[in-house]
């Protein structure tokens, strides 16, 4: 394997289910040690892509090489070197926290003694060491997700795949998961994750692709994408319960671009406060005004005309 070869290299990758094309010819390169994200709404093809990278779903077309091996032929050998944290929790609720890790380690033919030692270390890492002997059932959602992450690390994988790692968690639990994933990244583990949360993508990803309807619509670091497809600041104005249809004309000319959403209006501008002053200057009285920095949410809206979380 050449030194500069990508750990994951997808070329014109396609996945079809009958007539439906879930992934429509994407090209992706993931380099060693980076955190790479697939950002997109539900149904964009992120999970189908992840399942192909995880070698549990066969590509319908194109080429997919992982760790220098062919995903279509060397699935088992690749899976031995991957860690997978699936979207849906699939812990064994009746086994103990520790057993969930040791049983999983055996699938990788890791000797029982090694598995036990490694499991204890990993429980320490995800801050669940004091729950080692407990059943999984009563653990909180955040603890279960951390345990699933620990399970994905039991074979000391070179790449960790995380499908929606914090979906369904409360903010505090999410931050704890992010912090652990950041530590993993610092250790040099390559992370590949899907998310439909822009803040997650911004926090964790060095580089990401934005997916929509099975295609990649943009690629870059979060900062690059925001610079390219959004403005430095965004002004959000709301007008109570009033219908917003007519406001596009009234706000025309303020900022670089105006986007009317069902519940609020976004004004893309370099200077949010100045734009807000202009809105008031036209005699309009919004019920709320918010100036924030441009985000990946805006990138997505600009690229697809839709919001990320419906």
């Amino acid at each position: 394997m050449a030194e500069d070869e990508a750990l994951i290299a997808a070329t014109a990758l396609v996945k079809q289910f009958g007539d439906f094309t879930a992934v429509d010819g994407i090209d992706v390169r993931v380099r060693a040690g980076e955190a790479f994200g697939f950002l997109g709404p539900n149904g964009a093809g992120k999970s189908s892509t992840m399942r192909m990278i995880g070698c549990v779903s066969r590509p319908t077309g194109g080429a997919l090489r992982i760790l220098g091996l062919d995903a279509a032929k060397d699935g088992a050998a690749i899976r031995a070197r991957l860690g997978v944290c699936p979207q849906q929790d699939s812990l064994d609720l009746e086994l103990t926290v520790l057993e969930n890790l040791t049983v999983y380690a055996r699938y990788f033919n890791i000797p029982r003694k090694v598995a036990r030692a490694r499991a204890m270390e990993l429980l320490d890492f995800v801050q669940l060491a004091d729950r080692a002997g407990d059943k999984v059932e009563p653990l909180s959602g955040g603890m279960k997700r951390r345990l699933t992450i620990a399970r994905a690390l039991v074979n000391e994988p070179e790449i960790v795949l995380l499908d929606e790692p914090t979906t369904g968690l409360d903010p505090q639990a999410r931050h704890l998961v992010w912090e652990r994933l950041f530590r993993l990244k610092q250790r040099g583990v390559t992370l590949v994750l899907t998310t439909h949360y822009m803040d997650e993508a911004e926090q964790l990803c060095d580089r990401l692709v934005v997916m929509d309807a099975g295609r990649i619509v943009a690629e870059g670091s979060p900062r690059e994408l925001i610079d390219r497809h959004s403005t430095r600041e965004v002004l959000e104005v709301r007008f109570g319960n009033d219908p917003l249809d007519g406001f596009a004309d009234k706000l025309d000319g303020i900022g670089e671009r105006v986007e009317v959403l069902p519940d609020r209006i976004l004004v893309y501008t370099g200077d949010g406060d100045a734009a807000a002053a202009q809105v008031h200057g036209r005699g309009l009285t919004p019920s709320s005004v918010l100036v924030r920095r441009g985000s990946l949410e805006d990138v997505f809206l600009q690229l697809t005309g839709r919001t990320l979380v419906d």
């Binding site: 549990v56 899976r79 031995a80 997978v84 699936p86 999983y104 699938y107």
Partner: peptide, 9 residues
């Protein structure tokens, strides 16, 4: 599904 993510076929 869990087993399937490992090298098991």
């Amino acid at each position: 599904h869990v087993m399937r993510a490992s090298p098991l076929t």
